[in-house]
Nucleic acid binder design. Sequence first.
DNA 1: TATTAATTTATAATTATTATAAAATTAGAA
DNA 2: TTCTAATTTTATAATAATTATAAATTAATA
Lengths: 131, 131
Amino acid sequence: MKLNLTIQRKAVLDIVQHADDHPTAADVMDRLKSNGYAFAYGTVYNSLRYLTEVGLVKELKLGEAASRYDARTEDHHHIVCVRCGRVDEVTTELPADWLGKAAQETNYHVHHASVVLEGVCAACTAASSNE
Amino acid sequence: MKLNLTIQRKAVLDIVQHADDHPTAADVMDRLKSNGYAFAYGTVYNSLRYLTEVGLVKELKLGEAASRYDARTEDHHHIVCVRCGRVDEVTTELPADWLGKAAQETNYHVHHASVVLEGVCAACTAASSNE
DNA sequence: TATTAATTTATAATTATTATAAAATTAGAA
DNA sequence: TTCTAATTTTATAATAATTATAAATTAATA
């Protein structure tokens, strides 16, 4: 299964890789339009699915309605600002012994952990202290 | 704001409290029907929202399409079996110093953490070793 | 080049959920 | 108790995100 990057998939990948946020499919669509592309909505979804399957992007489900996409594919966590909705990366790894405890408690074989933190980002904290 | 538990809300709460899984709104609807109730779909959603607001149930967004509901309202985490979809509780608390590290890394004020683990449950592990 | 396979497109369908407005129920005041 | 106001339920329509479908395009292969 060789990598098949069509023009559409390449353009979608480019958007996700150069985003400094975590765009949704709709965000990707908008940015494609700004870059002069007019792909079908289905194509954007297909491309995101394809890119996820081949491991070039990650699909994030952070509890909002829409999935977000991330080109940082190393395993990591996320933090969401409850004020402005901004999403940032958390690269600190969960301690192995905590995972061990969870496995012990549940009798599961744990494959993967994903943490979603909620809080207030620096900008929003600053903004509220100026009120 | 006194608690207003209508018949409908009480019945919904009862379903969630006596479930040993984590039912979705559709699951709750089905079980209500089995118990002889025939409420409108909107009522089930309204009831779940109401019960969530007053803190009698928790809404879980575990990355599936539909929200699940949980009557265990103390803060805890969840683990999902990738084979059978079963969801279990993880009550082991995240170490405070890990949260501290995450806060430091991101410059957020962290309010809340939710972990979703993925793995294979004991039953599925047993089943696959018998193949 | 002819043929097959893969992909894109436009559109319809699906799923989970929320919104709306009328009808029913409940609560509080007169 | 009776009237009125507020709340809730119901039925249905609307919405949002996503997937499915089938025809049209493009690419790959024999």
